[in-house]
Nucleic acid binder design. Structure first.
Lengths: 176, 176
DNA sequence: CGATGACTTGGACGCTCGCCCAAGTCAAGC
DNA sequence: GCTTGACTTGGGCGAGCGTCCAAGTCATCG
């Protein structure tokens, strides 16, 4: 419901109405709205990381270059299929950054992303310690761009270009 | 004031109080709050693009590799000096994406960013048509990461790594 | 001088927000 | 059967929101 309508629209009344329960019940289940948001972020991040790992482990790897490109395509597919989830992820980050009591929640979120990315890259045979930050940064940027202009071709092209730069398939000029 | 307190805190009352004028005057100056936001985004984007261009044109270019690295460092410096402005930029994008009447505002914002990036890259001697999207995506991603964890070293390292991949200084293995 | 119109103001409209409370329901344990 | 305590509820608290309006100020101009 949050991914459908946005964090700003997720009032305690809207949430409880969606769940078909009385609004008063909200503060019986959660101490405050911040507590709910904490749980939402933790659950969402856990799901994202585990499903990304499962997707990478599920696909057969035929060399770091090819599988990196495949993984990037899979991410693009997920983005196109579930745009609201990705937008929600950024909304929650910013909500946390602007809300005093939730400042460290965003940090936890991205720590989990970076750890997850490191694990995914390791599964692809890429162990460079600076790689996770680079990959997460590029994915975030491409995602944000696509959420804005919905240009799938351009987004995929950027990902392909990055894959070529970052993990060239086999060798640049040999045995094409 | 928006960059200081966030978009959510920018109510018409907060804005007019900050400006030292009566709240009623807001709707004499602007038809609605959406109209103000439109002007804010347009002004902000214009300033960002022109100042980025001025910075690149101001620095002497000594080859695409070196100047690209310099430009990325300059961006990192601006980010560290004015974090709220960058956060505001993302907040406005998301506010626009979630607000029905403002949907195309985000598209205009990123169109301007991409055009600006293309111009900056052209000034650096990089004319690859896919380059602006790649660079803007990476800058957005690195910026978001830094806004969350405030790790300057890591952010600069990622930018350097990208500069090496994207526009290698002179030649990879010759005349170092 | 009197009228016009741009500009400013305090106050109000109806609405939503997070949070809280007194009262109620109802199965479990004595 | 009675008490306990987890659970649920409608209603209300004070506050803030975007927007609007009648009334007021005041320089300009016939």
């Amino acid at each position: 419901m949050m991914s459908r309508d946005g964090v700003a629209a997720a009032s305690t009344r809207a949430i409880t109405t969606e769940a078909g329960m009385a609004q008063s019940r909200f503060h019986y289940c959660f101490r405050s709205k911040a507590e709910l948001l904490r749980e939402v972020v933790e659950t969402m991040v856990r799901n994202q990381v585990t499903s990304a790992l499962a997707a990478v482990r599920g696909a057969p790897a035929v060399g770091p270059g090819a599988s990196a490109s495949t993984a990037l395509r899979a991410y693009a597919q997920h983005l196109v299929d579930h745009p609201e989830q990705h937008l929600l992820s950024y909304e929650l980050t910013q909500y946390a950054l602007r809300t005093p009591g939730l400042a460290q929640l965003a940090a936890q979120q991205y720590e989990a992303y970076l750890d997850g990315a490191a694990e995914v890259l390791a599964a692809l045979g890429i162990t460079d310690p600076s790689a996770p930050r680079l990959v997460v940064a590029l994915l975030d940027g491409v995602t944000l761009q696509w959420l804005v202009d919905r240009d799938v071709e351009a987004a995929v092209a950027v990902l392909e270009r990055f894959a070529d730069l970052f993990a060239p398939p086999m060798r640049p000029r040999r045995a094409g």
